[in-house]
């Protein structure tokens, strides 16, 4: 039977303004995890009932470690950011369907925005062939050096122009005209929508990782849905179980 697990915190430190990196020792999850999947983190505060879904950023199967990178945005992530090395945190996972990696595909385009960047790192590690990476941030970039380990082609955009070009990833795409057979993307919904439409215009396949507020995280409660095509009709699909990664043709953006 699956269950909630206890992970030991090996590292929990700030890597940029309001941004933390957490290393967890939890062999059961590391053994099963694949890029694009997420885990549920349970804060110690008993008034916060719901788990916080956080993507898996890196996996070390040998050591049984997983790395997370998270932004402190509210009560739960703030509480989690105050935990110490050696503390125990309850987690569940790996959850959801991650990215599909096909050996046949040789040209990869990775597009990440803000807190959508972390899940793309483990993916970049596993891809073979040509790869280019486009990352957009509000101000301070994260994980850029890590991506550079896997390709020279890492391009950055920031809203204030402090790093890379001034603007967003769509601007980068429009000026660089990257070639490739498959796009992998994660980031805020408006960015994903723009990526989907750029991909369609350029006739490139795309896998998009969505984000929605969740409760159970395993597909039972139907609170985390997104609008998706279904034959000639549409239905609300579960981001936690049917996703978080969806094909660009599936997603309906009008909500």
């Amino acid at each position: 039977m699956k269950k909630k697990l206890t992970a030991i915190i090996k590292k929990n430190q700030q890597i940029a303004h309001g941004m933390f990196e957490m290393l967890l020792s939890v062999g059961e999850i590391a053994a099963l995890a694949s890029p694009g999947q997420f885990i549920n983190l349970y804060s110690n505060r008993k008034d916060l009932l719901l788990p916080r879904p956080i993507s898996i950023c890196e996996i070390d199967k040998e050591k049984g470690f997983i790395k997370l990178v998270y932004a402190v945005v509210g009560k739960g992530t703030s509480d989690i950011s105050k935990m110490h090395v050696g503390d125990i945190i309850e987690v569940m996972g790996p959850l959801g369907n991650g990215f599909t990696i096909s050996k046949e595909i040789k040209g990869h385009i990775i597009i990440g925005g803000g807190i959508g960047v972390p899940p793309l790192l483990e993916l970049a590690k596993g891809l073979t062939g040509e790869m280019s990476v486009y990352l957009g941030f509000r101000c301070e970039p994260i994980l850029v050096e890590e991506f550079k380990k896997y390709t020279d082609k890492v391009y950055i955009a920031t809203e204030d122009g402090g790093w890379g070009i001034k603007g967003n990833v769509i601007g980068l795409l429009k000026s660089n005209h990257p070639k490739g057979e498959m796009i992998y993307s994660c980031g805020p919904k408006p960015m994903l929508k723009a990526v989907a439409s750029w991909a369609e215009d350029n006739d490139i396949k795309a896998q998009l990782s969505l984000e929605e507020r969740m409760a159970c995280g395993i597909g039972a409660c139907l609170v985390c849905t997104c609008k998706a095509k279904d034959n000639n009709d549409w239905q609300y699909k579960r981001v936690c179980k049917d996703g978080p990664v969806f094909l660009r043709e599936e997603v309906i953006w009008n909500e």
Binding site: L50, R213, A215, Y236
Partner: peptide, 8 residues
């Protein structure tokens, strides 16, 4: 179909 999000 259910309601439009946010649902929780």
């Amino acid at each position: 179909k259910g309601n439009a999000g946010v649902r929780v």
